[in-house]
Design a protein around this nucleic acid. Structure first.
Lengths: 213, 213
DNA sequence: CTTAAAAATGACCGGGTAGTCATAAAGACC
DNA sequence: GGTCTTTATGACTACCCGGTCATTTTTAAG
């Protein structure tokens, strides 16, 4: 387990405050860059206190990571369930919108994920990254498999390749929404709902039909 | 100018060694994480010497950045020229292969670019990122515009949206080649040439025709 | 009220960082 | 060989880091 007993004896709201503060710090600076000193000073507690809750920086990080993964897992599961009767491309559309909503609700989690993807220093980086990527690719794979059964998806192309393309475009869409200058002139960054949905529709349509004439 | 006169008085091979060593350090650790101490010790020179060549960490970083950008610019220009008579989707295919080759030849540049995309700390990060992204999106835009004129590309869809999709997939392909666990099960990471070309062909075909039935 | 257990504290440690600067070494010119 | 300029050097400064631990404060039990 990542946290010590003392941490769980804390009032729930304080646990949450610790978690949120650390999450913000890690997601903005990355694992190495995050400062325990800054976290405790933001929390207004003594340096030693955080070491009553967690054995070290690593275990604090892993605790937060687990929390984030669980949130993502639940969200994906829910979208999958809510759209279970919808056509495949509607499900893809809804998944993208859900992604935008998730980032809106938990801005630091997605930022933290992007940070970690290109860090070498995070502890167990490879295993953790694998965990997240597996979610995403299992999710998309199941969407496409069901789509094939319903006859909405091509059967003459490698499933993995289609998952790759879908994953690439969806992830980049969310990246462009989160980070400026990543959207090739689409200006998605922090765009508001009605407009963003228009772009989602266009992208999904393009994934369906391709760019060739 | 980023470097001091003293730096340019150095023998060219030493200039190159400094540049390569610093590039490696920055691309592996990011701007904040990179250590001047480590760079000079790898180079076998005194700490003070590097400050004879560059005023500070920032200007060393900017010098390296400029070098990398120039390399990318030249490479894109060349591919564009070499494929000028080819059909659009062949040009896209060739561009992807050129990307793989570039990473093979200059492994630290692409890694550094990825690092910077998700760092907050790099100096002038936004301006620098914008510079690179603009290259890429101008390049893809011109490919697609010429493709439209030749009647190979759809005309009923927003050009920017097509550029976005193309950019997303191509960039992710190179990311997956560079970093493990980003490829949704395609196992692109460090894959050898004949196989990787097969995947490129499949991806490009999918971009052309879409995943819908 | 007393006592024992649990939690909070912050000065302190060893080690890392970017950058400085007086001094020494090397080169260039006559 | 002497003089002046350019380059190389590394000890040093001020600051930040993660983590420790003896001590104090708070809480709970009897």
């Amino acid at each position: 387990m990542e946290a010590k007993k003392t941490f769980f004896n804390l009032p729930e709201e304080k646990q949450k405050r610790v978690l949120e503060t650390a999450l913000e710090e890690f997601s903005e600076k990355g694992y190495e860059g995050a400062s325990i000193n800054l976290i405790v000073s933001k929390l207004g507690i003594a340096k030693g206190s955080i070491y009553q809750y967690f054995t070290d920086k690593k275990s604090l990080f892993l605790y937060i990571f687990d929390y984030a993964v669980e949130l993502i897992r639940k969200t994906l599961k829910q979208v999958k369930y809510e759209t279970r009767e919808e056509p495949t491309f509607e499900r893809i559309r809804r998944s993208l919108i859900a992604g935008v909503d998730f980032i809106e609700r938990h801005p630091f989690i997605y930022r933290g994920y992007l940070k970690m993807m290109f860090e070498r220093e995070a502890p167990f980086r490879q295993e953790l990254l694998q965990r997240i990527r597996l979610f995403s690719s299992e999710y998309l794979t199941s969407l496409l498999v069901e789509g094939k059964e319903k006859g909405e998806i091509r059967k003459d192309v490698n499933l993995e390749t289609m998952v790759f393309l879908l994953d690439a475009v969806m992830d980049r869409f969310l990246q462009a929404y989160t980070i400026p200058y990543l959207d090739s002139g689409l200006n998605l960054n922090q765009m508001k709902r009605p407009e963003i949905e228009g772009h989602v529709d266009e992208i999904v349509e393009l994934i369906r039909k391709g760019i060739g004439k």
